[in-house]
C-alpha cells in the first residue's frame, strides 16, 4: 500500500503528516521525494545510513566525427547544446538527459557519459525505514532520483508513505504515479484553497483516490473545508493550529512518538486512510 502526501505549496504540513503516519504504523517505509529540500530525516534521525549514487546520462561529442550539421542543437528543447567555432559545446547542467541528440545525430558523433546528480540515503528509525532522495544543488531536475526511489520500493510489502515535493509539476506527478491513495494537505486560507485546487486537479487527472486533511485548523471559518464540501471531496480529518504540536515539530520531534494525544490522532487517521485505500482498491477492481 502506497500513500502519497501532497500539497500545492510548501509549509502546509506534508512532512508533518507523512512522518507521523509512518511513525504511527506498526512497520513502514518513509520515502522523501522532496529531493530539492528533503527534511523528513531531520525528524527520524535514521541510523545505519547507506548511500547510493544516482547518475544520469549526458551527451559528449566526438569533434572528429561531428560535421556541424546542428541537428542536435535544433532538436534540444532545453538549449543544452551550442555549436561555436566548429565545436559542439554541451551545457551539462541544462541537459535533461532525454537522449534525443544521440538518436538524431546522423554522424553518430554523440555518445553518453554518466553524471552524478544526487544520492539516495537509506537508514532505520525504530519501526520506520527512512529513504531520502537528495538532489545536488543546481541540477535541472529531480525526476531521475524520484524514479529510482519508487522503483526500489515497487515490491515493498510494508505500508509506504511518500512525502511529495510541493506543487503540481513533473516531480510531483512522478511521485504520485504509483500511489494507491493521495492525501492532500490544506491550509485554512483562501491562498490555501488555491493551492489545494492545484493538487486536486492533478489527482483527478491521474485518477487517484484521494482525501483532504485540513491542517492548522482554527475555530473560525475554513475556506478549504468549504471547498471540499462544495466539490464533495472526502475530508479525512483536521489537525488543530496548536502551539504544542508546532513546538514539537520545530524541535524536530515526531509528535506520535512524544505525545499520546497525537499518537491517537495519527493512528485514527492512518486507520481511516487504510480503510479508504482498501475501499477504493476494491471498488476499482
Amino acid at each position: 500500500m502506497k500513500i502519497a502526501v501532497l500539497s500545492g505549496k510548501g509549509g502546509t504540513g506534508k512532512t508533518l503528516v507523512s512522518v507521523n503516519l509512518a511513525a504511527a504504523a506498526p512497520a513502514s517505509v518513509y520515502i522523501d521525494c522532496d529531493v530539492e529540500e528533503p527534511n523528513g530525516h531531520l525528524f527520524f534521525k535514521p541510523q545505519d545510513l547507506k548511500n547510493q549514487r544516482v547518475v544520469v546520462k549526458i551527451p559528449q561529442a566526438d569533434q572528429k566525427l561531428c560535421n556541424g550539421c546542428r541537428t542536435c542543437v535544433d532538436f534540444c528543447k532545453f538549449n543544452a547544446l551550442a555549436y561555436i567555432k566548429d565545436k559542439l559545446i554541451v551545457f551539462n547542467e541544462v541537459c535533461h538527459s532525454c537522449g534525443g541528440c544521440l538518436l538524431f545525430c546522423p554522424e553518430k558523433a554523440i555518445s553518453e557519459k554518466e553524471k552524478e546528480i544526487g544520492i539516495i540515503q537509506s537508514g532505520i528509525s525504530g519501526n520506520v525505514r527512512v529513504v531520502t532522495g537528495i538532489l545536488n544543488t543546481g541540477e535541472a531536475s529531480g525526476v531521475p532520483i524520484i524514479k529510482r526511489l519508487l522503483q526500489d520500493i515497487r515490491q515493498e510489502s510494508e505500508a509506504v508513505f511518500i512525502d511529495c515535493p510541493p506543487g503540481s509539476a513533473c516531480i510531483v506527478m512522478e511521485s504520485i504515479k504509483d500511489a494507491d491513495y493521495c492525501i492532500l494537505v490544506a491550509e485554512p486560507t483562501i491562498f490555501g484553497v488555491h493551492n489545494l485546487d492545484m493538487v486536486y486537479e492533478l489527482v483527478r487527472l491521474f485518477h487517484k483516490p484521494h482525501g483532504v486533511l485540513l491542517n492548522k485548523c482554527l475555530e473560525e471559518e475554513n475556506p478549504a473545508e468549504e471547498f471540499c464540501r462544495k466539490n464533495q471531496i472526502k475530508i479525512l480529518g483536521k489537525i488543530p493550529f496548536d502551539l504544542e504540536l508546532g513546538t514539537m515539530n520545530s524541535n524536530g520531534q515526531i509528535a506520535v512518538r512524544h505525545h499520546p494525544k497525537y499518537k491517537e490522532l495519527f493512528r485514527n487517521l492512518l486507520d481511516l486512510v487504510i480503510k479508504e485505500t482498501r475501499h477504493e482498491t476494491a471498488s476499482n477492481t
Binding site: 542543437v73 534540444c76 528543447k77 532545453f78 538549449n79 543544452a80 547544446l81 551550442a82 555549436y83 561555436i84 551545457f91 541544462v94 535541472a140
Partner: peptide
C-alpha cells in the same frame, strides 16, 4: 524557450 534561452540567443 522553456530553458537555456541565453545559450540559444547567444548562438
Amino acid at each position: 524557450s522553456q530553458g537555456g534561452a541565453g545559450i540559444k540567443a547567444a548562438q
